[in-house]
Every structure is written in structure tokens, then in C-alpha cells.
Amino acid sequence: MTTGTLPLRSLDRYLTRKDDRRMTYEPFHIIGENRPGRWLITCDHAANTVPPFVAGGTLGVHPEDMARHIAFDPGAAGVTKRLAELLDCPAILSNFSRLVIDPNRGEDDPTLLMRLYDGTIIPGNARADSEELEHRLAECYRPYHDALARLAARQDDTVIVAIHSYTKQLKGRPPRPWHIGILHAADNRLSRPLIWRLRQEPDLCVGENEPYGGHLPGDSIDRHAEIPGRPSTLIELRNDLIETETEQNNWAERVAPMLTEVLTQTGL
């Protein structure tokens, strides 16, 4: 596993830092960087980590809330790792909570840094100003996206699969019935065939752009797939179905052959 691999200019910046606290923290992890598969599996919300240089390493959120979907995508990292192993391809996983800064938002998105999420106040973000936002962009967000861009460009025919998870029910909202959702924007070359394939499974409730729409300007898929023209899809798994390592592995093992099948069928 490669941890926090950066382009040379970014690496130089990291090595010249005087703050030793930053030297012990890496904003992302790369697994299987030299695997030959054309897929790239991404996990934008893999961790609930709060780096030591952000609000002293705590956002003031109760540990029970930091273990919820408001802080990261529970179960998504395990699915990502196993899926990348099965497809013999690299994976990149963030190593900072979405409450620190959300890597699946554009830099000008108003929800990039949340002060309230699903009924929970984020004390460590209450007084975060433009300088603090820039600090988090420089230390977490941009290094992650730099590395993702480098991996995506490693070969000409990269196909990106983004793995996310969602909660079965938000506070005050109706339950979400889908087991899995496939999100896409304008480019549905891979997503539509994958939805069709998943819907052949009689035990699955499959959503298209559910539980929410599949595109935000400047989000990860827009930035690394839509704009460069790379085929992609975003898979949302309901997090109560991927709580254990066994469940995470089972979902990866179920989805991997479907991805291979539809990629072959589409001729992408």
C-alpha cells in the first residue's frame, strides 16, 4: 500500500514543512498502485479522521456522531479495497472526515465545509473562516485530488468507479428502500447497463440517481471523469448492509463480475 503518494512538486512542499505534526499525517491512501487493471476505484469518504492540525484533532463532535454517516461513509472503505483486489486495479481512499472538508464537492460549493449536518452541530467548524478553509484545502482536499488525477491519468483507458454508502434513514425523513443506487450525470454509458444488470437480481431494490442525484459541478466524478471524458459510475450502498467485513466482501464479490460484464458489453 502506498500512503500519501504525491507528485514531485507536492512532495517537495511536504518535505519542507517545519510542523512535525503534519509529517505524521497523510491525507489519502493508495492501494495497488502498480496493478495493471484499467479500473480505478475511489472512496471519497473512506475515513472519519480529523487531522491534528484541524481544531486540535477534534471537531467537538460526540464519538457516536463521528461514527455515523455524517462523518464518513461507513463500510465503503472495505468494499473499495476488496473490489480493487478483485478487479486487479488501484484504489485511492481519503483519510479525512467529510466534516473536515468534503472532497466530493467543488471548491466553491457552499457545502464544502459543513457547520450543521443531519441535525448535528459541528463545533469545530463554527468559526472556520476563509483562511481556515484554505488551510484544509491545501492540507487535505488538494493533495487527495492531485493523487486521484495522477492515478486516473496513468493509462489512457481508465474507468472510474466511485464507492459510497448512505444511511437507511435521515432524521425526520422516510426510510430509503434501495439496497444499492447507481448515480450518474450526463455520461451514463457504464451506469445504465450496470443498472439494468443489477435489476436482473430478484432480491435487489436498485435506484437510479437514488437516494439523491448523481451530479454536482466540481464533484469528484465531474472533475476526474465527466470533464476528461472517462467512463465512470458511482455506486451507493446502504450502510446497514455493509457493516461487517464479510458483508463488505460479499458486496464487492457480487458487483465485481457485473462491472466486468457490462464493460465488455458496452465496448468502452
Score class of each variant (00 low, 15 high):
residue 6 L to N: 10
residue 9 R to S: 11
residue 10 S to M: 14
residue 13 R to L: 15
residue 15 L to P: 07
residue 15 L to N: 10
residue 16 T to E: 12
residue 16 T to N: 11
residue 17 R to H: 12
residue 17 R to V: 11
residue 20 D to L: 14
residue 22 R to F: 09
residue 23 M to W: 13
residue 28 F to Q: 13
residue 32 G to S: 07
residue 33 E to D: 11
residue 35 R to H: 04
residue 35 R to M: 06
residue 37 G to C: 01
residue 37 G to N: 03
residue 37 G to M: 04
residue 38 R to F: 01
residue 40 L to H: 00
residue 41 I to Y: 00
residue 44 D to M: 01
residue 44 D to E: 12
residue 45 H to D: 06
residue 45 H to N: 05
residue 48 N to D: 03
residue 52 P to Q: 01
residue 57 G to E: 09
residue 64 E to D: 10
residue 64 E to T: 07
residue 67 A to W: 08
residue 69 H to D: 06
residue 74 P to E: 00
residue 74 P to A: 00
residue 79 V to L: 01
residue 81 K to T: 10
residue 88 D to A: 11
residue 93 L to R: 03
residue 93 L to H: 06
residue 94 S to P: 09
residue 95 N to R: 15
residue 96 F to V: 07
residue 96 F to Y: 05
residue 96 F to I: 08
residue 97 S to P: 10
residue 99 L to G: 05
residue 100 V to K: 14
residue 103 P to N: 01
residue 105 R to Y: 05
residue 106 G to C: 04
residue 107 E to H: 08
residue 114 M to A: 06
residue 115 R to Y: 14
residue 116 L to N: 12
residue 116 L to V: 05
residue 118 D to I: 00
residue 121 I to K: 15
residue 122 I to M: 04
residue 122 I to G: 01
residue 124 G to L: 02
residue 125 N to S: 03
residue 125 N to H: 10
residue 127 R to M: 03
residue 129 D to M: 01
residue 134 E to D: 14
residue 134 E to L: 11
residue 136 R to L: 04
residue 137 L to R: 08
residue 139 E to K: 08
residue 139 E to I: 08
residue 142 R to W: 01
residue 142 R to V: 12
residue 146 D to R: 15
residue 147 A to F: 02
residue 149 A to I: 08
residue 151 L to C: 05
residue 156 D to C: 09
residue 157 D to K: 15
residue 158 T to W: 00
residue 159 V to I: 15
residue 159 V to K: 13
residue 162 A to T: 13
residue 162 A to K: 13
residue 165 S to G: 07
residue 166 Y to G: 02
residue 166 Y to Q: 04
residue 172 G to R: 08
residue 173 R to T: 10
residue 175 P to T: 05
residue 177 P to W: 03
residue 177 P to N: 08
residue 178 W to Q: 09
residue 180 I to G: 09
residue 182 I to Q: 03
residue 184 H to W: 07
residue 186 A to F: 09
residue 193 P to S: 00
residue 195 I to C: 05
residue 196 W to P: 09
residue 196 W to E: 15
residue 197 R to I: 10
residue 201 E to K: 11
residue 205 C to R: 15
residue 208 E to I: 02
residue 210 E to W: 08
residue 210 E to C: 11
residue 213 G to C: 07
residue 213 G to N: 13
residue 214 G to T: 06
residue 218 G to I: 04
residue 218 G to T: 06
residue 224 H to R: 07
residue 225 A to G: 01
residue 226 E to P: 08
residue 235 I to S: 02
residue 237 L to G: 06
residue 237 L to C: 04
residue 240 D to S: 06
residue 243 E to A: 15
residue 248 Q to A: 06
residue 248 Q to I: 04
residue 249 N to Q: 13
residue 250 N to C: 11
residue 251 W to K: 01
residue 255 V to T: 12
residue 256 A to Q: 05
residue 257 P to M: 10
residue 257 P to V: 09
residue 259 L to S: 06
residue 263 L to I: 11
residue 267 G to K: 13
